[in-house]
Design a protein around this nucleic acid. Structure first.
Lengths: 396, 396
DNA sequence: TCCCTTTGTCCACTCAGTGGAAAAAGTAGG
DNA sequence: CCTACTTTTTCCACTGAGTGGACAAAGGGA
């Protein structure tokens, strides 16, 4: 089946497509109210979009006291693929043109296996989604990788935790394999886009999205657009010094935030505590599973284990110190906390909040919500779908 | 005399005015090369600008082998006023439409005297510049104040070092007194704009401009535009924690960067060192002047005084630690160091560079220049003139 | 003087976009 | 069923920005 062959021919058409995508109005009249075009012009542009097949007019809406309007919507057969490659697992989802997740699967995978092995698995996951009847093909795919990306080319650069990926032409390779347009970005940026599109950050122009997983990163949104920095490494806050002369870090420095708090650091601390006999709860879990992860710490904390709670609080305090600095610097309208350790929940959030509200200036924190992400693991894949749809729904 | 009564009527005209301001080409043909308009359309827009009097066509340029071109330039009588209100002094300058400084005066003044007293002095300084024949009147004025500003309204908000200024309608008041349009911004942002327009940051899209004076602030430029944050306090890095459990700060916290290094902190440290007999050089200066300032420390350092050098190096290291974090986060293409303590020169710069290059990730620092500002005290006033000219050279 | 180059002007034409009128298709009430 | 009123959509003449080609103006070099 031929997929989405057309692109919007001008800015108006792109604007209309995005309005329709974002759950906007669906009659010509309602579209006209939002798009500041005369009805005549609007009708022309809609007509052209109908000709391309990107949108369809199916049926009539209920009357509101006058002539019934036509239902204008994005082509129901459009499908986007959202791929979120994490350090230890892969998420793949299919969405429709409105970016609603139709199917979502997650499989464990170590990125360090390299791009070839990873993409093989991604393709098999995509094939599985296709086989389940959710899609006949994909009109575009967004890919998130856990490291810096040279965005225009879609190529990872010097990724610390992804040996073998440096310079690999992800965009080009996947575009060939999938047979559709592909865009690549940092996983943290995609999470930010996901929360912006469908999560807690709707209608916020400037915000930070801190993702705490195996590592720590921060998505930066300025004026509704993701800011990527000069070389694409913006938001790499995992190696900001949180503790002077603190723990040695893989990057060669000491006291990096990531060395003191992250999924990996938390698991290590919990294991140490179990070995030292500080917590029966953790020791029991270590005994049972052979190794501890952040999830075990979350469970222990939920069971009221004091040691686990202390670990979370201390990590939250460290993270809060760093975020406090960023808040003073960036003066965001919102801070979103997400990633694998979101399971640590409100204990973590409270520690972060306390530290930020204490250390940052009142003018910056006065009206600053600090909240957990709302979408969990789907934030990344929704963000990925949004990335490619933003690309495709822009003038050719 | 009636001043600039007209504004560009559309985006093309605004574009042309800015091109002419920024020292661009000056014949219709050369303008056409840069502005992506047909010669016909361009001629029409230029004609309209000529009618408004904003630009003039005077004389013919030398031939380059064909018909000689007309010299198109901004009206030579246009004058902008740039005002930079610091914590302890005021800078006022007149510029022409190309933002070249025609006259510049500086006078000591304590902002804490309040807006009324300060504006009285600003007006008398402006009058002095007028009296010297540099201007017959002002077509617009830009004002920088040492604290956060609610930018759209031009009103300071909760300024820590400017009691009495909170909520004072600076823009409205000065606009009445001067009889011309006025724009107000944070002094640090104006310094960034100045260095961007005529200094080291030309042609850099994303950069940071750290101003170390009585306090410490940071101008943030994203995609060529100043980023001000949600409440206008972005860049307020003086109260980021630099030393855990460090010195008490006026803001109520401990260990703020500003408490450990700034013009004020440096003067205090130097005075302590002199009293403790650590430096004969500093003690002699204290004896002679009755009090020490950052300038004395700079002089002592230049004379080779070890204590002064140590103080500067330590301050630079602290500052470098904070900047290192910001570089990891923001991934700028350039870092500019400016403000009153620029006199500390390369000792300071070296300490900052060492710390940033050591602590930040290679991908962010790989091609990152860290340099001193090029314009010194004129950066602020040029930035101020640029602020108002950007405003006036935009469609009405 | 002839030919070439560069700059600037003129003019007919295209096309995006507007706004008003009218048609289409409904609801509500008698 | 008929009338009055709404809302949505279509139609169409008109405006005005912008284009591109032809041409005039003004110079240089052989």
């Amino acid at each position: 089946m031929r997929r989405m062959t057309a692109r919007p021919g001008n800015a108006h058409q792109a604007r209309l497509l995005r309005l329709l995508r974002d759950g906007g109005p669906n009659s010509r009249a309602q579209l006209g109210d939002q798009v500041d075009l005369s009805r005549s012009k609007l009708a022309v542009e809609v007509e052209r979009l109908l000709e391309t097949g990107l949108v369809v007019a199916d049926g009539l809406a209920a009357s509101r006291g006058g002539r019934r309007s036509h239902n204008i919507r994005l082509a129901p057969a459009l499908r986007f693929l959202g791929v979120d490659i994490g350090a230890t697992s892969i998420d793949v989802a299919v969405t429709n043109a409105e970016l609603e997740v139709l199917g979502h699967i997650n499989q464990p995978m170590d990125v360090r296996e390299g791009p070839v092995a990873v993409f093989e698995q991604v393709l098999s996951m995509a094939a599985k989604l296709k086989a389940s009847g959710l899609a006949e093909g994909f009109d575009g795919a967004g890919i998130g990788v856990p490291g810096p990306v040279r965005f225009p080319e879609g190529v990872p650069v010097a990724p610390p935790i992804m040996p073998g990926w440096d310079g690999f032409p992800v965009r080009e390779a996947l575009s060939q394999d999938l047979g559709c347009p592909v865009m690549v970005d940092n996983d943290v940026n995609l999470m930010a886009m996901g929360e912006q599109h469908a999560g807690v950050a709707r209608s916020v122009g400037d915000f930070l999205c801190v993702k705490i997983g195996t590592g720590i990163g921060c998505g930066i949104v300025v004026g509704g657009e993701v800011y990527r920095g000069t070389t694409g490494s913006a938001g790499d806050i995992g190696h900001i010094q949180a503790v002077p002369d603190g723990r040695p870090c893989a990057c060669g420095n000491r006291g990096c935030l990531e060395a003191h708090f992250s999924g990996a650091a938390l698991a290590r601390d919990a294991t140490d505590a179990a070995h030292q006999g500080l917590s029966q709860e953790l020791a029991a879990r270590l005994e049972a599973a052979g190794a501890l992860s952040a999830i075990d710490v979350a469970a222990a904390a939920a069971a009221g284990d004091a040691t686990a709670l202390d670990l979370i609080r201390e990590g939250g305090t460290r993270t809060g110190q760093v975020i406090a600095g960023l808040v003073s610097f960036f003066n965001p309208g919102l801070v979103v906390i997400g990633g694998g350790v979101t399971g640590l929940g409100h204990t973590l959030l409270a520690a972060i909040r306390t530290q930020v509200y204490r250390q940052s200036l009142p003018l910056a924190t006065g009206n600053l919500p600090i909240v957990l992400g709302e979408l969990g693991p789907t934030a990344g894949v929704i963000g990925a779908a949004r990335l490619i749809s933003d690309h495709l729904f822009s003038p050719a």
